[in-house]
Structure formats: C-alpha cells, structure tokens
Computed example of a mutant assay.
Amino acid sequence: MDGGGRIAGSVRGDAPTARQPRRDPRPAQPVRAPAPASRTALLFRRLTVRLGASRFGRRGASALAVLVIGGFSAYGVVMGGHVEEAREFVVDLGDAAANIAGFKVTQVNLSGQNHVTPSEILAAAGIKATTSILFVDADETRAKLETMPWIASASVRKLYPDRIDIAVVEREAYALWQINGQIRVIARDGTPIAPYSDDPRYVSLPIVVGEGAEKRVGDIVDALARVPALRDQVRAAIRVADRRWTLKLRNGIDVRLPEVGLDDALLEIADLDRDKKLLSRDITIVDLRLPDRVVVRLSDGAADTRMQLLKAKAKAKKGGPA
C-alpha cells in the first residue's frame, strides 16, 4: 500500500509495451575515420580563416584561394609535363577572344616557295584557321620557317587587322652527298635539304661521298669546273679521312689527289690526258699525292701483258749473239 491506503500496482503491467527496434542480423561495419588533412590544406584553411577575420575580409580570402589554387595548378602542369599543352590552351583562348574582336587571320600571302608547299609553310609557321594576328610573333615565326631544310631565309609581315605576308628564299640543290649507304640532296653550304629521288633536277648534280664531303663540296666542285675536260669524266668525288679527294672516273680509274695543291694536280692530270691519253689507257689508279712524280697502276690484264713482254725481251737478249 502507498501512503494514501492504495495498493501499488506494477508499472509494467499497467503501462503499454514499448515497440522494440528490429535488430540488423548483419554484423556492424566499422566506421572509418576521415583521412587527416594534409599540411598544405591545414595551412590554406588557417590562412583563409585568419584573412577572412582580418580587415581584408572575404574578398582577400577569395583572392588568396585563387592565387593558391592557381599556383598548385601551375605546379601540377610543370611536374606533369603538360607545359606545352597548357600553353596551347592559353593561346587558343586568346585567339578565340581576339577573333571575336575582329583580329582573325583571313589572308596569308606566300611568295618564293618552289620545293616547299604552302601547307608545309603554314604548318611550320603555326598558322591555323583559328589564329589571331594579335598572337603571331613575326620574329618567332621567321625563326621557325628558317629551320626548314629548304628555306635559307624568310620574312614575315603582319598587316592589321587580318593579313600576314610571308616571303621565303629557298636553298638551291647543289650536289648529291652519299653517306652510310644513303644519298641526300645538299646545298652549297652542305645543308642536307632532301632525300634523293628521280627528280630530273637532281640527275645531273655532282656526287660527293664520305664523312666531311658535304662541308667541302664547294671546293671540289669549283675546282673541277675550272677543268671541264676532266670534270666531264668524273663520276664521283670521294673524301678520304676528311683530308683529300679521290676522283672516281666513269671508266673506273681512281685519281688520287694530294691534300694541298688541288688546282695544280687537276691541271696536271688534264694535260697528261690531253698529251699522253693517260686516262684512256689500261690502268686502274693515277696517284698524284707525291709532289715530284705521277704514279700509275696498271690493270691486272695490262700488268700480265707487260710481264710477258718483259720476259720475251729478256729471253731474246739471252739467245742473241755473244
């Protein structure tokens, strides 16, 4: 009984039974703690909060955020090796804006090209359908064009608002240079400008062979031009140890020239051929490397014939009168 003479009843018996929550039969999954923020993120957050509470206010915090994000973006571009892609992206954005303002390149005038095509020139210059004249660097474009093998020099003029004039001076095909089993067309200064082909313009070019021959091609070609009778018999000029030349004639004779006195040696061999028909004889080598004599090597057949003649003369002397 309670203090009022009443019988105390059971609380559970009188009160309604509370509904128990359903238990999940699956085992509880452990909750992963969030990854700790990096030092850079913590520093950025702290600086942002402090700057936001300072007299600079939220604008300063926003500016800091832009600077930091831009800095890390630039760092990622550099470390990831995407500098060129990023530069092209920025240039494309600039071109798009300038084109809207009326500075899109609509006319490109080319002059002076013969071996190179207009499309090759435009590709080397970096001029595309979306290029704006504001972002064309004339000096840089000229330098790019002059890296092309055929182009010796170039000029680039920008005429606002939408025109570019490009004039090029091409190198001339001067000779054929054979090295390591390959033949290339070269200019007088030795610059390789194209692989050899059946182009009729290349067929009559002089041929030089060997390491260093391309650098001295003007010397031998000019020297032979002064002796046309000999030049017309030359098939190729071979550079030996980058010190001297050996001429390979069309009839198979090798003419070994000295290191010095090239012009005098060529005149001497031309005189011997005119007076003695030297280059029409059965010989394989004419050696002019010695300053005081000309050495000739007979062919195998001519050497055998000469040996037989010498033996016959010796035998005739022995059988003659005492």
Rank of each mutant, 00 (worst) to 15 (best):
D2M: 05
G3N: 07
G3F: 06
R6F: 07
G9H: 12
R19A: 13
P21Q: 03
P27H: 11
A33L: 12
A35K: 05
P36S: 13
S38T: 09
R39N: 10
T40H: 01
A41P: 08
A41K: 08
L42I: 15
L43N: 08
R50D: 00
L51C: 06
G52H: 02
A53G: 05
S54D: 13
F56L: 00
R59M: 01
G60E: 11
A61P: 06
V66H: 07
V68G: 00
F72S: 02
H82L: 09
E85Q: 09
V90F: 06
V91E: 15
I100R: 11
S111Q: 01
Q113P: 14
P118E: 02
I121R: 06
L122N: 07
A129P: 06
S132G: 07
A143L: 12
A143Y: 13
L145S: 07
T147Q: 13
M148P: 05
A152V: 10
V156G: 02
D162K: 05
D165I: 08
I166R: 09
I166A: 09
A167P: 08
V168D: 00
V169Y: 11
E170M: 08
W177L: 01
Q178E: 15
G181D: 02
I183E: 05
I183S: 03
I186L: 10
G190V: 04
G190T: 04
I193V: 01
A194K: 00
Y196M: 14
P200K: 14
R201Y: 02
R201V: 13
Y202E: 11
L205W: 04
V209P: 04
G210A: 07
A213N: 05
G218A: 06
I220C: 00
V221A: 05
A225M: 02
R226N: 12
P228N: 10
A237S: 06
A237D: 02
I238M: 14
R243G: 10
T246A: 05
P258L: 01
P258S: 01
E268Q: 15
I269Y: 02
D271E: 15
D271R: 09
L272Q: 15
L279E: 07
S280Y: 13
S280P: 09
L288D: 08
L288F: 04
D292P: 04
R293W: 04
R293G: 12
V296A: 01
G301T: 01
A302L: 01
R306H: 07
L309A: 11
L309Y: 11
L310Q: 12
K311A: 10
K311V: 11
K311S: 14
A312I: 08
